[in-house]
Design a binder for these strands. Structure first.
Lengths: 247, 247
DNA sequence: GCCGATTTGTGAATCCGGTTCAAAAATCGG
DNA sequence: CCGATTTTTGAACCGGATTCACAAATCGGC
């Protein structure tokens, strides 16, 4: 019985290794040639397996894309774990979360595009349920970080006590602001058409307006560019010191 | 020469009518069967033309989708035109813009999905330049409405004078917030996973936080649910009275 | 170690739908 | 009315995701 079990174990490990290989190579392909550059048969050949073998791991191309996204989301989520422990005020830590996300997106443009494509109804419909759940699960540490910071802010009195709004729902504001700005900034030619430049600077200012509007102390006027810039620099320095956001 | 010219005119009109027919039918198809239900040869057959004829109007499937989106965007943009003239304070008019957008998206879920899919890098790359420009152009009245309201708010002193921020850049905040919330609300299962409900109620509250953070008068505390609800109702009533937002 | 049963891997064939293009039809100018 | 030009046609083409009949590998009992 024991040898059978260890055999079974080995085979499962090998299977997992093969899946990891597929995901890794797929990601490379996407990074180098874009989403269109990823072809199922080419990828299988790259990894020295038959096309059919690839389909034993992923139900469809979309399923594979979701797996790639989940892997990178785990990496991204890792960056947020240490933020609640940073030696900064709660409001600055909230800014740290936003900055970390901006930086990750800037360093991984292909990841941003991939997730944007994935959540498209047409594509999402072809992702298997377990992969969907894995992708959602991968992002959990991010919402946990947000939750922790909001909860602490309330405890400390930096943020007025909740009135019909949970920690998650409070975090929803900056989250939506972030997602929306990424989306607008990435739509080729859109902001240019309205003569809007440096969208991420504006994101930060609007973030401060939002936080100040919720009376998150210490209030910071979004309309004081110099103050906003100084705070951004200060928080970025703290992130760097904590080793968060390194390539 | 004259008959030739009128012939030419007629042919151009016929061509435009045909194009409108294609776009109209394509939109119906999408509404009924989703984006995947739209097939070029089927659509051509539906309209009683050959596939090749369809390709004389649209360079690709994506190009056709962009044309559909532009048409609906024009309809959507039309709703915003009258908002700057509404008998409401500037801040309430800004809210009117947000509410109008929420309502349009709620009434046209397929339109939201279509644009989300279109601005995806992979898809956008296959849209011809004129169609891209037409789509961007179609949204112009919206940004004009925003510009007008922000500019008037500054003139009247409802909003402090600009400091390194244009009217468009001020409008970018609520715009991003809107886009981001739509995006999150539409990602199947995402907000549920974090136990967040009624995302549009939160969008409105965060909108008020944002405006209050920029010191847009009369300031309204996002943390007063009853006040927020009353203001929403009041503005919705004004919109209804002006005939904006009817199906 | 050997053998039939079962599981896993293979890659050529299938399928699908977007796109093309040679031929047919319509229109034009004289 | 006629040849030249433009427009329309839809069957053929093509690329790439997916399948599946077959082959190879592994297994469990002897």
């Amino acid at each position: 019985m024991l040898p059978a079990m260890s055999t079974e174990d080995r085979r499962r490990r090998e299977r997992e290794a093969r899946e990891a290989l597929f995901i890794e190579r797929a990601h490379e392909r996407i990074r180098e040639d874009g989403l269109l550059g990823l072809q199922m048969s080419k990828l299988a050949a790259d990894c020295e397996y038959a096309t059919g073998t690839l389909y034993q791991h992923f139900e469809s191309r979309e399923d594979l894309l979701a797996a790639v996204a989940a892997r990178t989301t785990r990496e991204r989520a890792g960056r947020f774990r240490a933020i609640p422990e940073l030696a900064l005020g709660t409001r600055s830590r909230m800014l740290a979360i936003v900055l970390t996300d901006i930086d990750f997106a800037a360093q991984n443009p292909d990841y941003y595009r991939l997730t944007q494509y994935l959540v498209t109804e047409v594509v999402w419909a072809n992702v298997s349920v377990p992969r969907r759940e894995a992708l959602l699960e991968a992002g959990r540490p991010i919402s946990e970080a947000v939750h922790a910071v909001v909860a602490e802010a309330r405890e400390r009195g930096d943020l007025p006590p909740a009135r019909e709004i949970s920690e998650e729902e409070m975090g929803l504001g900056p989250w939506a602001l972030n997602v929306g700005m990424q989306s607008l900034a990435n739509a080729q030619g859109l902001l240019d058409a309205y003569d809007i430049h440096r969208p991420y600077d504006h994101l930060i200012r609007h973030f401060h307006a939002l936080m100040t509007g919720w009376r998150w102390e210490p209030r910071l006027d979004p309309d004081e560019p110099a103050v906003v810039r100084a705070e951004t620099d200060r928080v970025r320095a703290a992130l760097r010191a904590a080793g968060i956001g390194e390539q």
